[in-house]
Computed example of a mutant assay.
Amino acid sequence: MRTELASEPGDADRPNEDFAGVGLPASGQGGSLVVLDGVTPPRGGAGCRHSVPWFTARLGGALSELTVSLPDVPLADLLSRALVRTADAHVETCDLSHPRTPQATVVLARWSPESVEYLVLSDSVLLVESPDGAVTPLLDDRLALLPRSALATDALVDATVRNKEGGFFTAAADPSVAARAVTGTLPRAEVRALAALTDGAARWVEKFREGDWTECLALVRKEGSRALVDRVRALERADTDRVVLGRSKTHDDATVVYVEF
């Protein structure tokens, strides 16, 4: 088995809000990956005394442990348990009902000799490659399908679509959000490789259109996870007139985890 992980902050002067980990149980039977993309809150407070990196470290750590230690519990249930554990760590000091309480997108995958389970919540992506080379992106596209008018301001997003029916969902403090995730199970024999990308790394496909998902995974296999992040950074720096980036931040935290069976 080959595993690779690369993660880089969008700004060297700010902490990386992503979390990534690969777990390989001592039994040698299977493993798991966890990728979180922390949601940067707007200025003005989020009702919490803790930072987004604090939250992603807590939630990511819980998920890393639970996906390995409870192999028979479905991933959605594990996400729910991890959210409860994380919320309990700061419910006494923070307003967890605030719409911008620390939160994150989630990608989980867990494999055994028989199967590969997956969970995707919000706009990170899990790529699945089959033995014949076909690549399937597993996406939660609810945010991408919203009209731009619904995302005009932070206040509008928080009031109408963030963690609301008809909008999109992220992992915050409410454990019931786990049931909103995109989940499924594939036969292990039908999976040759996995690649989990936060949206900062997925820009190579989704924003800069340098290739499709198949070409993206091929790049990671051939040149490594770090190479994809470097390609994205070069494209961001080259877009000096912001033809592609527009009002988006120049650099976003970018994380890639690759697993080849």
Rank of each mutant, 00 (worst) to 15 (best):
P99H: 04
D11S: 13
A57L: 12
A202K: 08
T250A: 14
E114Q: 11
A173K: 00
R231V: 02
D88G: 08
L186E: 04
T40C: 12
A195F: 01
D241S: 14
S176V: 12
L197S: 02
V84H: 07
D230F: 00
C216Q: 07
V52F: 00
W54P: 08
R2Y: 01
T40M: 09
P102C: 10
A189Q: 15
L151K: 12
P25A: 10
D95E: 09
S225W: 00
T93D: 15
G10L: 09
L63T: 02
A57E: 14
E236Q: 13
V232N: 03
D88I: 12
A189R: 13
S112I: 05
L78S: 05
T136I: 11
T160R: 11
E117C: 10
R43N: 09
L79D: 04
P99M: 05
L151R: 12
H90E: 11
R180H: 14
G224T: 02
R203C: 06
A134E: 15
T101A: 15
L70R: 15
R43F: 06
C94F: 08
W111G: 03
E129S: 12
T185K: 08
D88P: 00
V161P: 02
N163K: 01
D95I: 04
L235N: 09
T250N: 13
L127P: 03
S97W: 06
P187A: 13
R203T: 05
D95N: 12
D11L: 13
L145R: 13
E17K: 07
K207Y: 08
E190A: 14
H90S: 07
L197I: 12
L194R: 03
R180P: 07
E117M: 06
S130E: 14
P102G: 09
L228Y: 04
P42E: 01
H98T: 05
T185N: 09
E114G: 04
A178T: 11
V257A: 11
R221H: 08
T93Q: 14
D11I: 04
E114I: 00
P102K: 05
V120Y: 01
P113Y: 06
R43M: 06
D230C: 02
W111Q: 03
F168K: 02
L24M: 10
L79F: 10
R247K: 13
T240D: 10
G45H: 04
V125P: 02
G10N: 10
L63G: 06
D88N: 10
Q103M: 14
L186T: 10
L156P: 00
F208A: 05
R142C: 11
P187Q: 12
R58P: 00
A179M: 10
A6M: 03
V135D: 08
G44I: 10
V232L: 07
C94D: 15
T40D: 07
N163M: 05
E215W: 04
T198V: 10
D199R: 07
E8W: 06
L24C: 09
D123R: 07
A195P: 02
A171R: 03
P25C: 12
T250R: 15
K249L: 11
G200N: 07
D132H: 06
L96K: 07
S149F: 04
P9K: 07
